[in-house]
Amino acid sequence: MKIVLDHLQVQQGEWSLLVNGTFEEGIHLVSGVVGSGKSTLALAMAGIFTPSQGTVKREGIKTLMLSTQFPEFHITRLSIAEECASWGLDYKDVIRSARLKVDGNVSPLSLSRGELKRFHLACILAREYDLLLVDEPFSSLDCIEKELLCRELSTHDSGITIIFTHEQSIFPHVDHLWEIDAGELCALGRLPGALTRWQRAPALIKKLTDLGRCPVNLTPDAIREAACRIHE
């Protein structure tokens, strides 16, 4: 199973994005500065956005899910119970997995933004997909919830999971790293080698790689382990 982006090009005025690449099974992290086109790329991969040129080929992918940056965009019903039912889920299970302290009658839009994000992610992650596209999944989540989400995403051992994010400190286990730089998607390769090629790596990662203590992955444990080696 894979998704192939062949000379995909998006042009909007002076802004452009060029993408060539193949995403195979595993967990991929796509980074890039504000406005570089991460969300546009996610929409194109999901088939929601038609690029100016090029093709998106999804091979062997039968199920696909896109989680957008803002959870409000996903809400279609007036209560948590109805919203869960629209996903084919039991609201009690979702409330439990999202660690919410509410009942099914309340409106999803009455939750705090972090709680809404947890609710939305719980609906998304209740099922497995061949292709899971998650745009800024960590935004609005507190540090504890970010770590819990990372643990959950790290357990994805089948299908293609693509995370589009600006996150700087808390990451799941990542197999492949990509970066949008100067209007083009660059494949940085597999971790840990990819970390040394990451132009806009988070400050801590940059510091560790500059000191020759490249972490084996991006998980908090891997980063701490690399940092400990500095102090040996």
Binding site: C143, I144, S169, I170, L208, I223
Partner: peptide, 13 residues
């Protein structure tokens, strides 16, 4: 000792 403690402080780099 909590997730709120800055990672860079935890790593002391």
């Amino acid at each position: 000792g909590t997730a709120f403690y800055p990672l860079s402080w935890r790593c002391r780099v």
